[in-house]
Amino acid sequence: MTLPRTVADVLSDHVVFEIECIDRMYLNVYVPQLQYPAGLVGFVHRQLELPIASTAPLGKISDAFTAGIRRFARDHSVPMVDFVRGQRKDDVMHEHLARFTAREGVLFIGRAQEKNSVFRTEKRRNADGRAYPWIVRSTGVINQFYCYCVDADFGPFFLKFSSYFPYNAKLCINGHEWAKRQAERAGIGHTALDNGFAAVEDPAAVQAICDQLGPEQIDALLRKWLAILPHPFTPADRDAGYRYDLSVLQAEFSLTQMLDKPVSGRIFFEQVIRDNLDAGRPDQVGLVFDRRI
């Protein structure tokens, strides 16, 4: 048996298969017209039919949305969890996932208080001293509701809603989970890792599946679960164009390269470490940090 001697040897001669896929993706979920004060003023005038623009009437919508989330949890026997400081939300998710047996559904709804962008009304005065309300963007520590779910196509994901107007949300998905479910549906034999593939019968077919994941599938996931979970905006609001849109906040992409033997992996990592030992030496630190030492 000829052992590889360099990183290049390992990657050129000892990779059994490789899969490139979207890993984690974190997306903004927002109503475009409501991301600036003038848009909020228009909502208050047109949808609430109020003559004076103020954030005060929006409190009733927030209260109704929060009550709707708690009612949904009660009616569907979904656990409500109050996250505590320092608690890893993924650990809580895995605890509930281990007990979950349905094909899809809501695992639990978590509540956390986090700093978030909000609109507030402040009092201003005109030239003759009369007061009038003025809407400004600010920040505040408010409730965030994490809806942890399992989807038949995407597997575990979460949708996090802000409890304050304009009820911006975040969607977090895992592309590997989507790919594993599509491979299973297509009858492609594979051995799954927690976050990838350990073995596949047809790497090219799995790669083709990974390449298919895009905006259409992600948007369909969002629309599906917005129809299932409590929605802060009424059907009349949505008919008037106040509908959620998506944008990418953070995306991680992975290249999984499965090696033929454990020894190949050991040689790979040892050689990478050896090749980079000089990077930390005093005469090389300046190359890394662009500073004279």
Rank of each mutant, 00 (worst) to 15 (best):
T2N: 14
D9P: 02
D9S: 08
D13K: 12
D13G: 12
H14W: 09
I19M: 08
E20F: 07
C21D: 12
R24I: 07
P32G: 01
Y36S: 07
Q47A: 06
E49N: 14
S54D: 14
G59D: 07
S62E: 14
F65H: 01
T66L: 11
A67G: 14
G68S: 11
G68N: 11
A73Q: 02
R74Y: 02
H76F: 14
H76S: 12
S77E: 15
V78T: 11
V84F: 03
R85L: 10
G86I: 10
Q87I: 06
K89M: 04
K89L: 03
D90V: 09
V92K: 05
M93Y: 03
M93L: 07
E95Q: 10
L97W: 07
A98N: 08
F100T: 02
T101P: 00
T101L: 00
T101I: 00
R103H: 06
G105C: 03
F108R: 02
R111V: 08
Q113S: 07
Q113K: 09
E114A: 13
E114V: 13
K115F: 09
E122N: 03
R124P: 00
R124E: 05
R125S: 03
R125C: 00
A127Y: 07
G129N: 02
Y132L: 01
I135H: 01
R137T: 15
S138E: 15
S138A: 15
V141L: 04
V141Q: 05
I142V: 07
